[in-house]
């Protein structure tokens, strides 16, 4: 990555040569990382789209893709609860994304624009929550939902997921609104627009990239979640795709081929985000890193 030739030597090698060595090192590093990142992804895809007889033929695992099939996916949809799991995942992901984003935008705006005592405390509370361990939160939530008879409900899982994603969302929007100059709002007020109207017509459009970053983040947390769904949902028909698929390998009729097919399905939304929305996401990183 870096010219490892070291300080003293550097003085005697021309800057041109240094640059060439550096360039080679850079390309090599990039190549190694690309391989490290892509091999597992390739293996997943190869197994998902091959018949299992091809994959395991002859006692060695073949990943060469010499026959292509969608049978593994068909079996997932006909013989397992996958359609239901996907539906559950989409439902709780959508509802918790909406809730977390709305909450973050509202709280972020309020915390930025209104001065109050204890602002430092609020900031610390948000940050503290955002470093917290989901499993530690999951235990009391489990007991509380159980006492309320709310285990195995979309509501409980939505709340739990929002609990994990909202602190970061609030933090992000809080910082984002600071980049929106107050003068923008003031000029709207002068032109006679009300506060709420200004927020709606002026502030929110400007803050849209931040809002989208928050939504992407909330989406990922919910879509990827295993811990909360595992704890809150105890019935097969309420499982999300992550919990449902984690149990596939225990069954005789389902093997690695179908499991990897499920993995491909779970990878589609992250893939779409990485491809089309990564700039919003990077904005999120720039503001405060994300979990």
């Amino acid at each position: 990555m870096i010219d490892l030739g070291g300080g003293a030597a550097g003085k005697y090698v021309s800057q041109h040569t240094q640059e060439r060595i550096r360039r080679t090192a850079v390309v090599l590093t990039a190549l190694l990382v690309a391989i490290f990142v892509s091999i597992p992804v390739y293996v997943m895809i190869a197994i998902a789209f091959q018949p299992s007889t091809t994959t395991f033929r002859g006692g060695t695992v073949s990943l060469l893709f010499d026959s292509f099939t969608l049978d593994n996916f068909v079996l997932l949809f006909t013989d397992t609860g996958t359609p239901r799991y996907l539906f559950n995942s989409l439902l709780v992901t959508a509802s918790s994304t909406l809730l977390a984003t709305a909450l973050s935008v509202a709280a972020g705006y309020g915390l930025t624009r209104f001065e109050f005592r204890g602002k430092t405390m609020a900031a610390r509370a948000v940050l503290f929550a955002y470093m917290f361990s989901p499993i530690v939160l999951a235990i009391p939530l489990y007991v509380i939902f159980f006492t309320l008879g709310l285990l195995d409900s979309y509501f409980a899982l939505t709340m739990a997921l929002t609990g994990i994603s909202a602190p970061f969302g609030i933090w992000l929007m809080w910082q984002y609104f600071q980049t929106v100059p107050e003068a923008l709002e003031e000029s709207a007020w002068i032109r006679g627009a009300g506060r709420v109207r200004t927020l709606w017509d002026v502030v929110l459009p400007v803050a849209r990239p931040g809002t989208i970053a928050t939504a992407i983040f909330a989406f990922s947390v919910a879509w990827n979640d295993f811990t909360m769904a595992r704890v809150v949902m105890s019935q097969d028909e309420m499982y999300t795709i992550t919990v449902g698929a984690s149990l596939f390998l225990d069954r005789a009729s389902i093997g690695w081929s179908e499991t990897m097919a499920a993995a491909v399905l779970m990878s589609l939304p992250p893939f779409a985000i990485a491809l089309f929305l990564q700039n919003y996401l990077l904005q999120g990183f720039n503001v405060g890193g994300l979990e």
Binding site: A34, V37, M44, N224, A245, T259, A263, P270
Partner: peptide
Amino acid sequence: MMIFPYLLPTLVVIFM
């Protein structure tokens, strides 16, 4: 390529 693993569900990473 780098951002993709970060967005993948943990379960998928573990399968791989």
